[in-house]
Amino acid sequence: MSSFESVNSILPALPLPGLSEHQALQVEFTWLAMIIVVAVLVTVVLGLKRVPGVLQNIVELLTEFIEGFMRDIVGPRWVKYFPLVMTAFLFIIVSNYLGLLPGCVAPTGSLSTTAAFALVIFFYYNGVGVRLHGLRYFKHFIGPIPALAPFMLPLEIISELARPFSLAVRLFANMMAGHVIIGLCYAAVVIGVPLIGMLFESFVTAWIQAVVFSLLTMIYLGGAVLADQEH
């Protein structure tokens, strides 16, 4: 994969111990994405207006977009779980688009970033389920019919453990595939053709993957929050 990664970055690669040059760049751009998210949100919140400006409009649009899904999927107690989902959504969408700028590296193009996100979400929603329902939360592992429990239990445990894995690999593979395709276009014709890959990635992959990641987070959370109901 390293042969497609450009080394012409806008940030100098710091000599971080134990990391290669590209990994150090990914760490730096992770910080850059975090700084962008925090700076934009702080600017908007400090300057809240009744008639919103451009930046406030964008942030409100994204917030309402996620809020609509949260109401539908997580149910009446959605406010409590909103910050985690929104944080994941904003960070992922910013870092996906960051990767499209020339001279930048997408933090989500690294399996470490996406795996960290997926593991945080995995432990969080299981923790929420245990806190809300106690040990009854684990009842859904044995399936609807007690007699079938020996067959259902391994299947349910495997499908539960596959969730963080598929969350992480889906996002990582989408971003990496996008960058490899842009790299291939660039290798074919230097001018113009890479734009096709970049347009596809910016209009389809980048935001769909952010939406899908946060939608799945909400669905898992909803499953944990509403574990005592039929769903």
């Binding site: 994969m1 390293s2 042969s3 899904f69 598929s166 690999v169 889906r170 593979a173 989408n174 990496m176 595939a177 490899v180 769909i208 993957q209 939406v211 899908v212 939608l215 799945l216």
Partner: peptide, 27 residues
């Protein structure tokens, strides 16, 4: 359309797993 996008991502992910395997083989 929302649920289509979700299902789309699931289906697309299968190809991307194949893509990761292909890249691992290729490099």
């Amino acid at each position: 359309r929302t649920w289509f996008i979700l299902g789309f991502a699931f289906m697309e992910a299968q190809t991307l797993y194949a893509f990761v395997v292909a890249m691992m083989l290729f490099f």
